[in-house]
Simulated scan of single mutants.
Amino acid sequence: MPDIAWEAPFCGEGNSCFRIGTDAEGNAYIAVNGQEDRYLRDSVGALRTLIQDIKAGKADHLL
């Protein structure tokens, strides 16, 4: 498992808590809080776009 620096959990309504992390190689990670061993990895730019789209209401069904 890569050495991931996880940020504090972000919790929406209900039990939707996620953590975002990065590694030294510039990869970005997202995982359900408490299950950081099961994560999705992509580029920082792709994760930034996903978060911006969620905030803009384009992908609110994902949360």
Rank of each mutant, 00 (worst) to 15 (best):
I4A: 08
D53L: 11
Y29N: 01
A56G: 12
V32F: 03
N15S: 12
I51N: 01
G45V: 08
K58T: 13
G57W: 05
W6Y: 11
G12S: 07
A56T: 14
D53S: 10
E36Q: 12
D60T: 14
D3L: 12
D37E: 15
D60M: 01
N15F: 13
A46R: 15
G34E: 03
D23M: 10
I30Y: 00
Q35D: 14
G57V: 12
N15A: 08
D42T: 14
C17N: 13
N27H: 13
R41N: 12
M1G: 11
D60P: 03
S16K: 05
L50Q: 08
T22Y: 02
I4P: 02
N15R: 14
L63T: 04
L62A: 05
L50N: 03
I51H: 02
W6G: 10
R38P: 00
E36N: 10
L47I: 15
D37F: 14
F10L: 10
Q52K: 09
C11Y: 03
I30H: 06
A24V: 08
Y29F: 14
I54Q: 04
C17P: 06
R48W: 09
A59E: 12
Q35V: 12
I51W: 07
T49P: 07
E13L: 09
F18P: 00
I54K: 00
L63S: 04
H61W: 14
D42Y: 10
D42W: 09
L40T: 14
E25C: 05
P2S: 12
I54R: 01
Y39S: 05
C17Y: 06
L62E: 03
I4Y: 11
F10W: 06
N15E: 15
L50G: 11
Q52N: 10
D53G: 10
G57L: 07
D42I: 07
K55W: 13
S16Y: 14
N15Y: 13
R19C: 03
A56V: 13
C17A: 12
L47E: 02
S16P: 00
N15V: 01
Q52F: 04
A8E: 15
R19A: 04
G14F: 00
L63D: 09
H61D: 05
K55N: 15
A24G: 09
K58D: 13
R19W: 02
R41C: 15
G14V: 05
A56Y: 00
F18L: 12
R19I: 01
A28R: 04
W6H: 08
N15W: 12
D42E: 05
E7K: 13
F10N: 03
K58Q: 15
I20G: 05
V32R: 01
A24C: 03
I20H: 00
L47Q: 03
E25G: 06
S16Q: 07
G45I: 01
P9R: 02
V32N: 11
P2D: 09
A5Q: 08
S16R: 09
C17E: 04
Y29L: 05
H61V: 05
E7S: 15
D23V: 10
D37R: 11
P2Q: 10
I20T: 09
E36H: 04
N33W: 09
T22K: 06
V32G: 06
Y39R: 04
G34K: 13
